[in-house]
Amino acid sequence: MGIAKPGSEPRRRRSGAIAVKCGMTAEWNEHGVRVPLTVLWIDDCRVTQVKTQEKEGYTALQLGAGSKKAKRLNRSERGHFIAGDVPFSAELTEFRVSPDAILPVGTAIGASHFSAGQYVDIQGRTIGKGFQGPMKRWGFSGLPASHGTTKKHRAHGSIGNSQDPGRVWKGKKMAGRMGNRTRTVQSVFVYKVDADRNLLYVKGQVPGKAGRFLKITDALRKPPETPAYPGWGFGDFAKEAPGGVSVAKMDDPFVKQSE
């Protein structure tokens, strides 16, 4: 599960999951410290297609989550789900996996796919804020508030470089559309896993507004060192996945940790 070193075997990569952002809450851990949490709901997530090296040129799993009426899908989308004999999904996402992590079509993935205490990467679309000026969009300080400045207090100032080069550089920070971009938050701590209700409680905030779908994968920079249980994400893991609620143990911030 760890990152491969030069000259070693490739890193094993298992599938992630698709979740719905429900909102934020907070809990107090065993040390009496308030932990801000984002609640993620894995809603009917299952494998809808398997892509192999022989056919598609790479190994991946396509997952679907949520539900959608047939009349809300076009003909090609309906045919895709009918061919795989899986329910109609509201969201489709692809996960690159290693060959030993291929799961059969129709395999359900729940909250027990992750374990409390591990780190995950979460990808989503940020909240769109429309057309914004340079102060809100980029944090500019604006022009002086006095001494002759008129109707330009929130402007960005000069954007050119005189006659040479005589143009505005590409990528110049200016006013424009803000938000609604695909962003990934790395190494998010999984505080609690509710396997019975398919809920994940992760520490801190994640991209997007409540009700949006998010893509969750094992953290790239902090991968799980050991599997949570036999067959964790590899092979027939659904029968071995634990149930109930599990909470991660956190370090006591009031006690100095030994090196």
Results as ranks from 00 to 15, higher is better:
I42V: 12
Q49N: 12
K69P: 05
K69E: 13
D43R: 03
G57T: 08
K69W: 05
T52I: 08
D44N: 12
V47Q: 14
T52G: 11
R75S: 11
A83F: 01
C45Y: 01
Y58P: 12
Q53M: 12
L61M: 11
A83L: 09
S76I: 04
S67Y: 12
V50D: 05
D43T: 00
R75G: 05
A90T: 04
L61D: 12
W41R: 11
L73A: 08
K68C: 11
G64E: 00
Q49W: 02
L40I: 07
T48W: 04
K68I: 15
G79H: 05
L73P: 06
R75K: 12
K51C: 08
F81S: 08
Q53E: 14
G57E: 06
V47E: 12
A83H: 05
E54C: 03
A65I: 02
A60W: 11
V50R: 09
D85N: 15
E77A: 14
R72P: 02
N74V: 06
Q62K: 07
A70I: 09
N74C: 10
T59I: 15
R75I: 09
E91V: 07
C45W: 06
S89D: 04
R78G: 11
G64N: 03
V50G: 08
S89E: 03
K51H: 07
E91A: 01
F81K: 08
Q53K: 10
R75D: 10
F81I: 13
V86I: 13
T48Q: 13
Q53I: 09
E77H: 07
L73K: 06
E77Y: 01
A70D: 07
V47I: 15
F81G: 04
R78A: 03
G79F: 02
C45P: 09
K71N: 13
A65P: 00
F81N: 10
F81Q: 06
G79T: 02
A83K: 10
T59N: 09
